[in-house]
Each structure stands twice: as structure tokens, then as C-alpha cells.
Amino acid sequence: MTGLLNRILVQAFKHLPWLGEAWARRYPFLRVAGIPWAPLRKPLAECRLALVTTAGVHLTNQPPFNMVEPEGDPTYRAFPVDTTRELLTITHDYYDHTAAERDLNVVLPLERVRELVGEGIVGGLTATCYSLMGHIDGRHVATLASRTAPEVAGRLMADGADVVLVAPA
């Protein structure tokens, strides 16, 4: 029953934009101070791009994101950017990933970024992709902000990322 209700809610949020709007207007977002800013220092054609997704993508042999915890799973998964499609899966009950299962580029455009690297529009890609699960609530918002996000940021630094694209689900 809970599963069915969840599936109905996921479809409602997908097809009725005002529902997402109503949710966002009531949601107690973490209050943030200021807007961080790092200027772009070199052309994209010379930059190493890193990808971060919150679409719940992970390697088939990695532990799936926790779908039981009602406040979401604030952990992340890392996988090589050149992982073949068959080795990736999606664990995320809070959006309809039918389309993403058919073509992962819909949420994580790995093939498209490789094409741009081939054309010289993007300088290159960092070796590792980072993936989170977007549905974070309650106490786990603080876990995400204070632990997971800084850890992922530190790893992106170590990876030599010059620019980062962050994509939702």
C-alpha cells in the first residue's frame, strides 16, 4: 500500500508542477547566508569538468541508497566516469526514473559530455562521478550540509575539477 501511494505521489509531482511549487513554498529550507562565488579562471575548452548527480545513480555492486529511512539517505556514491551503462543502476523511489533507465543521459549526460570533449568544447573530464539521492529531509539536511557536501567538494578538489555540473532528478 505504501509503495502504491508513493508511486501515485511520484507521478502527481511529475505531471502537476503546481504540486512541486506548493511543496517548495512550505518546505523549511536550510537558511543560507550569502552566495558562494568562484570565478571561472580559464575557458571551458581548457577545463576539466566533473559531474555530480542527485538522481540516485550507482554501481550495481555498490550498496543501494536507503529507501526505508523516511528522511532520505544523505550518503553518496563515487564511480568512474567511464563506467559502462550496464554497470550502473538507479535507486531512488522519489522520482519516476523510467526515462532515465531507458537513457541515462536524461539525468546524467555522460555520453553527451564525452562528445563535447571530443569536439574540444570541454577540455576533459575528471575521473570520478559523484552521486547522491535528492530526497533529503529532516535531520539529514544537516548531515548533507555539514558532512556529505563538504566531503564531495573536497574529493572534487583532489580530482582536479576546474568546473562542476550539478544535475538534479
Partner: peptide, 9 residues
């Protein structure tokens, strides 16, 4: 929040 943390670095 993740995006902000990366930019902060």
C-alpha cells in the same frame, strides 16, 4: 547545498 559547498572550495 552540494553545489554551494563545491563553490565554497
Amino acid at each position: 547545498l552540494v553545489q554551494r559547498a563545491i563553490e565554497e572550495r
